Simulated assay, not measured.
Amino acid sequence: MGMQAAVQLVYPPQCLSCDALVTTDFGLCARCWRDTPFIAGLVCDCCGTPLPGEEGGAPVQCDDCLTIARPWGRGRAVMLYRDNARRLVMAFKHGDRLDLARPGAQWLHRAAVPLLQPDTLLAPVPLHWLRLFRRRYNQSALLAAGLARLADLPHCPDLLVRRRNTRSQEGRDREGRFRNMEDAIRVNDKRRWQVEGRPVLLVDDVMTSGATLGACADACLAAGAARVDVVVLARVAKDG
């Protein structure tokens, strides 16, 4: 403790999002915390989108999840993909801010508590090898690894394989996003034995339409997974 205190005197902890000083490592200052739309209260049991009303014990779903047949069972999200949450995700994803993996995993752990069953296998949404080569890391794999450590559950970073280099989902409508992901994901043949008969929790950074997570869940179920749930750092949700 003495050494840690000495280090903090020389290198005082700073906000994850700005240069303001904070009291603990990997924290947000008061202003950035207010600007980060963490999700709390009643949420869609399928995707984690916040819903109006109070928690009543019975699971409820948002309009999107009532309209679209989701291949996974339950889902949770840490924050809405806007304001400071968007800035944090973009810095983590494209700005080499690997230090954000640790607090991101801690936030995921709190959100994913209802989904963490014994023997659950955690797996990230995969990148195609070309994109992984350019980016040098898979942000979803870093989050999944951190969550697995906190939850003391097994993690399989290469459970899923992106069999073709799908083009970016940005700018596509919902139908285009789902079409772009058709037959794009499969279970790694060398890891198939790990998924058979057990629950799988998929981890990703952002959910928009759910097309990518849906393709991953379909692949896991086709390989014999007992069930599939999902947890994401940020959820794109409609205003209002």
Rank of each mutant, 00 (worst) to 15 (best):
1 M>R: 12
3 M>W: 15
4 Q>D: 12
8 Q>M: 12
23 T>G: 00
25 D>Y: 10
28 L>N: 03
28 L>M: 13
34 R>K: 11
37 P>V: 10
46 C>G: 08
49 T>L: 13
50 P>I: 03
51 L>C: 05
52 P>K: 02
54 E>G: 07
55 E>I: 07
55 E>C: 11
56 G>Q: 10
60 V>W: 02
60 V>K: 07
62 C>E: 09
64 D>V: 02
67 T>Y: 00
70 R>T: 12
70 R>D: 03
71 P>N: 07
72 W>T: 05
78 V>F: 13
85 A>E: 12
94 H>L: 09
97 R>C: 06
98 L>A: 12
98 L>T: 15
100 L>F: 09
101 A>W: 11
105 A>T: 07
107 W>D: 10
109 H>Q: 14
114 P>L: 03
118 P>T: 01
119 D>N: 14
124 P>Q: 00
131 R>H: 07
132 L>M: 13
133 F>A: 14
137 Y>N: 05
138 N>P: 05
142 L>A: 14
144 A>W: 04
146 G>V: 02
148 A>E: 05
149 R>E: 15
151 A>K: 06
153 L>E: 11
154 P>K: 04
159 L>S: 02
164 R>T: 08
164 R>G: 06
164 R>I: 09
165 N>G: 05
168 S>M: 08
168 S>K: 11
169 Q>E: 04
170 E>R: 14
170 E>Y: 12
172 R>A: 01
179 R>M: 00
180 N>E: 10
180 N>W: 05
181 M>V: 13
181 M>I: 09
186 R>Y: 02
188 N>I: 00
195 V>Y: 08
197 G>D: 08
198 R>I: 10
198 R>V: 15
199 P>C: 09
207 M>I: 08
208 T>N: 07
215 A>I: 12
215 A>F: 13
217 A>D: 09
222 A>N: 13
225 A>S: 03
225 A>Y: 01
227 R>L: 12
229 D>W: 08
236 V>G: 02
237 A>M: 01
